[in-house]
Each structure stands twice: as C-alpha cells, then as structure tokens.
C-alpha cells in the first residue's frame, strides 16, 4: 500500500502499533478539514510494527497528550516537502483535561467546571495522580 508524502503538515512517526486511533481521537483530528492518513501496522526495523499518522496541515498539536499516549512518538514538521523540525516526546509532568478522575468521592465529581489535572508520580510505570484527591491512574486507563 502506498500513501503519498505530504507537502506541508505533520507526520507522527514511531507510534506504537495499535495506538494510531487513540492519537486520532485525543488530538481531535476528526474536526480537521484537511487530509489525514492513519497507517497501521507498518513494518519498522526498530519496532517491528508501528503506526504513522500524517496530517496535511501545520496545526498546533498538544504534545503533552501525545507524550502521554506514547512517549516514543516522533513528531516531524514538514514544509514544502522537506522535514524542517523533529521533536521527540516524553511523559508530561502535568496532564490537564486528558484523564478524568473517576473517584466518586473526588471534588471534581460535583464541581464539573474544575479542570481535571493529573501530575506524574512514576515515569517508569507511567503513573499519574489526581491533583485533588490523589487517586492514581495508570496509562492504560486512557481510552
């Protein structure tokens, strides 16, 4: 299968195989008018299999969300068919309105206008803690 390169926009590479849809959902790519390509299970020398997302628009993406979904993703910025910038990601210190606190005893359960803020507690296990009630959330709970 062939998917063309893009002239201007962003290529999200080295996405863990199976996570492209999650990237699509959390970056709200369905709201875009421009072309978006989701490529699943590409062969990769480094990863065996990987997903790629190509977006033909130079949009301001939330790198924190992306870093949380998969810190191994590389973000390539393309201009006139040439890569002009490349960013590697890491798990963000703080996540705002990405994870939802599900603790029914948390203040957030009755005050809906409060932002859902989580702070990192363990980088190796990708554990985050609700800023209000201290409930720990694991990375796999993001779906």
């Amino acid at each position: 299968m062939t998917v063309d390169g893009i002239e201007n926009g962003i290529v999200l590479d080295h996405i863990e195989a199976g996570k492209a849809m999650m990237v699509y959902k959390y970056l709200n790519l369905d709201k875009l008018d421009s072309q978006v390509a989701l490529i699943q299970n590409c062969s990769s020398r480094k990863m065996g299999k990987k997903d790629i997302v190509k977006i033909s628009e130079d949009l301001d993406i939330d790198l924190d969300v992306l870093g949380y979904i998969d810190p191994g993703i590389t973000v390539n910025y393309i201009k006139n068919g040439i890569r002009v910038d490349k960013k590697t990601l890491q798990l963000p210190e703080t996540l705002t309105n990405v994870l939802k606190c599900k603790n029914p005893r948390c203040i957030i359960s009755i005050e809906q206008e409060l932002p859902h803020v989580f702070k990192i507690v363990d980088r190796t296990k990708a554990l985050y803690r609700c800023m209000y009630c201290d409930t720990i959330v694991r990375s796999e709970e993001l779906n």
Partner: peptide
Amino acid sequence: RHPKEGAPVV
C-alpha cells in the same frame, strides 16, 4: 471540612 476529597486543594 468538606465531604469531597481534594476540596481543600481547590
């Protein structure tokens, strides 16, 4: 004193 956890953070 508040019944909900984290209210003091707010």
